[in-house]
Design a binder for these strands. Structure first.
Lengths: 350, 350
DNA sequence: CCTCCCTTGTAAATCGGTTCACTGGCAGTC
DNA sequence: GACTGCCAGTGAACCGATTTACAAGGGAGG
C-alpha cells in the first residue's frame, strides 16, 4: 500500500468558498470575520459553503496582509531539563489560551546555534520572541534584536537593557539557602557546580559569598567547585570534596541535578546526605521531593516563569508602548530531609 | 523608560534590497536563491545590499507561492511528562538539522482540545503533523486528516489505517517484564495504573494476561488495578493491594511514575520495593536509575521515538509516494534493584 | 418625482516573496 | 551579413487572504 492510493485533496481556498456561496471573495472574507456589513442569510450561505467544502482558513496567507502571524517563538537551551520542559509547558498553555502558536527551538547553550535559531525565528516571522540567552550572548545582539520583533528575555540580568525580562530571584533564593545552613551552625559550606562563564552562576556565587561574609565566615576558594550541570558533575565534585583535608559540612548546589550527583558521590563513599552532609539544591524538580532522602532545595516555579513570559509577550504585542517590565518570581526554600535537624558536628568527621 | 524610545524599524523587503542593488526584485530573489542565471558581480551587489540594509528573508511570504512552510506541527498530550519532553527534544533537533521549525501544542489528553489544536495547526499551514492521538480519537478523524497534510502518528496501533506510525513495542516490553517476574517464581503479579479507555493500556493488559496464561497462571481480576497515571495513582493502588487478603508478590506498572507511587505506598507501610515486592515500571525515565532502590523498568528511548517520527515525516514530505511505513522501536528490560534476586517467598508474608 | 442616506456587496489594490515567459545583447557559425 | 544560441536580467502573474473605495438598490423625506 502506498500513500498515492488516496491523493492529497486539492487545497480549498476562499475563492472556492465564495464561488460556492455565489458571492465575491471579499464578501466571503467579511462574512467569516463577522463583519456587520454582511447580512445574516448571506453569512449563512458562506458558512454552509465552508462546511461542505471542508475549507480551512489559511492564517499564513492572511498574515501577509495583516502582519500578524499569531505565532510566538521560544528559544531555550535544552528541553531535556525538566525545568525547561515545565517552563515551555507553561508558556505553551498560556499562548494556546490566546490562540497563539508556539514555535520551539533549542540552542544547547551554544551561541552559534542560538544565532541561527534567532535568524530562523525572524524568517518565520514570529510576532514575538521569548529567549533564554546563552551565557556568552553579547548585549548588543539582544539590543539589536528588539529592532526586529518584541523580545522577552528569560533571565533577570539584562534589566538595564531596554528589554522585557522574566526571571527568578535566585539571588534571594541563594541567600535563604545559606541563611538556613548558617542558622544550623554550618561554617564550611561548599558551592557546587556550573561554570564561571554562566551569568546565573556568577550571581549565585556572589550571593553565596555575600551571605558568608555577612556572618563573618572566611571564604575558602577551594570550597567553590565548578563543573558541568549534570549528575556526573555533582558526583565528581563530591568525590573531590571528600578528598580535601577539611571537607565541608554542607553544600549548596547550582541545581538539583548536581545535588543528586552529590548524593550519589556520598553514597559511593558509604555516606548519606542529611546525615553526613547538609545539602541544598536549586530548582525543586519533581524528583527532589521523591528522592531518598528528599532534597532541600530552592523552588522557583518554572511553569509560572513560562506563563509570565508568555503573558508579558502578549501584553507587549497588544500595547507596544507599555512601560518596560521586569517580572521576578520569588524563590522559596523547601526544607526537606537533606538538611533536617542536622548539626555540623555530626558531619563528615572522618 | 518605555519601549517607544526606540521604535521598531520599518520592515526591509526584497524590493528595498533590489532598489539598493539597482536590480529588479526578480533578480534579487534569484540571486539569494543561488540561481545560476545571475552573474557573480550582480549576486555580490545583492548580498551587499542585504547586509547593509539588515534584510531578513520572509519565509512566510515565500511560502505563499512555494507552498512550503518549513514548519512541522507536533501535538502531544503533556510536556510535563519527561517521556514526552524527551520525545519533543528528539523531534526538534532532527527538524532543526533540516531547517524545519517545530510548532508545538499540547492536548492534556482531551479530545476537544486536540481537535482545536489540529485545526490551528492546519490553519498555520504546517507542512506535516506529528500527532500523539488521545485515546478516544475516532479513527475516521485521523483518516480524514491525511487529506489535509502528511501525518505521522505516535502510536503503534493504527497500523492498518493508511497512516505512517512511529511507536514503541510495548507489547514485547510487557512480555519481557512478565517473563522476568515469572522466571523468578512470582505467581501473583499485579498490573497497576492507567485507565481502561487508554488503548496503550489495553494492549499492555492484553499482553500481561497472555504472558500469565502461557505459564498457566490463573488470572485474578482483582490484581489488575486501574487509576490515574501519577504518583498518587500508584500510591493509592498499592495501599489497596496491601489491604487484600492475598496481596501480590510482584507488580508491573503502567509507567515509572506510577511505580514511584507504588514505592511510596510500600514505604508508608514500612515496606520496601525489591525487598517486600518485586516491582517493574515502564518508560525508564531518568529518575528510575537514580531512585533508591533503583527501578527495574522497560526502556523505550523516547528521544529516538521523536527523532524517528521527525525523520519519517521529512522523508514522507520528500517522497509522498513512499510506501506506508511503521517504525516500532524495540523495548528493553532494564534490570535494577527492585527485582534483584528477589524470590516470592520472601515477599509480603504478613 | 427627486434627492439623500443606508444597507449590502464587490472590484481591485495590497502584503512579500517566486517563477515563467520574454528581451536585448553578444559570440559563434555558416 | 543573417541566423542561432546563450547569457544575464526583467516584467508581470501568482500564491490566498484583507481592506478600501466605491456601486447598486431600496426606503425615507421633502
Amino acid at each position: 500500500m502506498t500513500k498515492s492510493d488516496r491523493p492529497r485533496r486539492q487545497k480549498v481556498t476562499l475563492q472556492h468558498v465564495a464561488d460556492a456561496a455565489n458571492v465575491s471573495k471579499a464578501t466571503a472574507s467579511l462574512a467569516l470575520n463577522n463583519s456587520t456589513r454582511i447580512s445574516a442569510p448571506t453569512r449563512q450561505r458562506v458558512l454552509n459553503a465552508v462546511k461542505s467544502l471542508g475549507y480551512v482558513y489559511n492564517q499564513r496567507a492572511a498574515s501577509l496582509r495583516t502582519q500578524r502571524s499569531y505565532t510566538i517563538g521560544l528559544i531555550i537551551k535544552d528541553l531535556s531539563n525538566p525545568f525547561n520542559a515545565e517552563l515551555t509547558s507553561g508558556a505553551e498553555s498560556q499562548l494556546a489560551d490566546h490562540d497563539y502558536s508556539l514555535v520551539l527551538a533549542t540552542t544547547d547553550d551554544d551561541l552559534g546555534k542560538q544565532t541561527r535559531m534567532i535568524q530562523t525565528m525572524l524568517q518565520r516571522d514570529v510576532d514575538g520572541l521569548i529567549l533564554a540567552p546563552t551565557a556568552s550572548t553579547p548585549t548588543s545582539d539582544l539590543q539589536r534584536l528588539t529592532d526586529y520583533c518584541p523580545l522577552v528575555l528569560l533571565t533577570p540580568y539584562h534589566a538595564g537593557l531596554g528589554v522585557d525580562c522574566v526571571g527568578m530571584d535566585d539571588e534571594n533564593g541563594t541567600a535563604r539557602a545559606l541563611e538556613h545552613l548558617i542558622q544550623q551552625g554550618h561554617r564550611r559550606i561548599a558551592f557546587v557546580g556550573g561554570f564561571d562563564t554562566d551569568l546565573t552562576r556568577q550571581r549565585r556565587v556572589r550571593s553565596y559569598r555575600h551571605s558568608l561574609r555577612r556572618h563573618d565566615i572566611a571564604l575558602d576558594p577551594a570550597l567553590c567547585i565548578a563543573g558541568p550541570v549534570s549528575r556526573r558533575g555533582g558526583y565528581d565534585a563530591m568525590r573531590a570534596l571528600l578528598r580535601m583535608p577539611a571537607p565541608p559540612t554542607a553544600a549548596y548546589c547550582y541545581s538539583d541535578v548536581i545535588a543528586f550527583g552529590v548524593m550519589l558521590g556520598l553514597r559511593a563513599a558509604g555516606l548519606e546526605a542529611g546525615k553526613d552532609l547538609a545539602l541544598i539544591g536549586f530548582d525543586d524538580v519533581p524528583e527532589a521531593a521523591l528522592w531518598h532522602p528528599s532534597l532541600t532545595t530552592v523552588s522557583n516555579d518554572p511553569r509560572g516563569l513560562g506563563l509570565n513570559a508568555a503573558q508579558l509577550m502578549l501584553r507587549r504585542i497588544a500595547e507596544p508602548d507599555l512601560p518596560l517590565k521586569r517580572i521576578i518570581t520569588p524563590s522559596r526554600l523547601i526544607e526537606r530531609d537533606t538538611t533536617a535537624a542536622l548539626t555540623p558536628r555530626r558531619c563528615l568527621k572522618r
